[in-house]
Design a protein around this nucleic acid. Structure first.
Lengths: 166, 166
DNA sequence: ACCTGAACACCGTTCAAGT
DNA sequence: ACCTGAACACCGTTCAAGT
């Protein structure tokens, strides 16, 4: 019961834990590398911390506010240095935030036992793809997701400078 | 208490609700439009449903399994038609899944009242950006996120065919 | 076969009482 | 100032009893 003297809520307690956890993540020096590499570095650092304490990801996903201010600033600055402006900086941040912390809410998809799946069902895309699933690890999902987001952001930057395609 | 006769768990009950909800989402005809447009259509359809019942998003985020099989297949087929192969199909699906359902876990970021933020703090990227935040709506986050993911996926497809850059 | 009501375990929170 | 223990409300689940 003692914590209740310091904190008014369980939520608030978890916020503190979350902040503490993220405060240990290092931010790369501003000019140490191009923006995409720096972004990958921070995001990987965060992910490493979450890996050890996956329960905390939920707290962070829910409330951007409880994200360590220093870290959030660090990411915003990387995005600014990439060339994002105004609202785009936030839109980009929110996307990264959602993916990064949302990941840990997804229970490592329990593979439907390949032998259980009816392989005759060719209509069923899932069934025919199941064999590929067993080789995938959490790391693969993370790397692919981060790659895709970075490429997507790069495209957004390019779109700003050229005539729209859409 | 009656539900407990049909279902062994609260979780299982919510799974059924989630499936029912997604079963109402329409899938575009396979050749009706290019893959990216079709993807945007499904994803927007899902989002519309979630918008009315945001509580369900959490269930879907947690367990890919409880996603309506028909819908998941529909998305996998769109990805296949885009040119993704083997594991990449899943990696791409997982990314979309995480973002789409994760979104609803993020409480609409409570803007730190602009007048509260110290504007003198120029070190603080967040503080200087706050003015841009007030104009942003949930729709904006969604559209930007989906755009970015689609562009990211397009880049992944292109990377497959050309020599690697990384 | 299906529903109801009472009971139980569990957990977040409060509060009075301790030191 | 800070901690402890008992009490309470709330919720998921069980189970015996109803129809």
């Amino acid at each position: 019961m003692a914590p209740y003297w310091y904190v008014s809520d369980k939520r608030e307690l978890l916020d503190l834990v979350a902040r503490k956890l993220l405060s240990e993540v290092e931010l790369p020096e501003p000019d140490s590398a191009p923006w995409d590499e720096r972004l990958r570095t921070v995001v990987t650092g965060i992910d490493a911390r979450l890996h050890d304490h996956p329960g905390i990801a939920g707290v962070l996903l829910e409330r951007m506010r409880s994200t360590d201010r220093r870290l959030m600033n660090g990411i915003l600055e990387i995005l600014l240095s990439a060339g994002f402006e105004g609202p785009k900086v936030f839109l980009s941040y929110a996307m990264i935030h959602t993916y990064l912390f949302g990941r840990y809410q997804v229970v490592e998809l329990d593979t439907p036992d390949p032998s259980q799946v009816d392989p005759g069902d060719l209509e069923d895309a899932l069934a025919t793809l199941v064999p590929h699933l067993s080789g995938l690890r959490g790391r693969d999902f993370f790397n692919y997701g981060v790659d895709t987001i970075i490429e997507g952001l790069r495209a957004q930057l390019a779109a700003k400078k050229r005539p729209r395609r859409r």
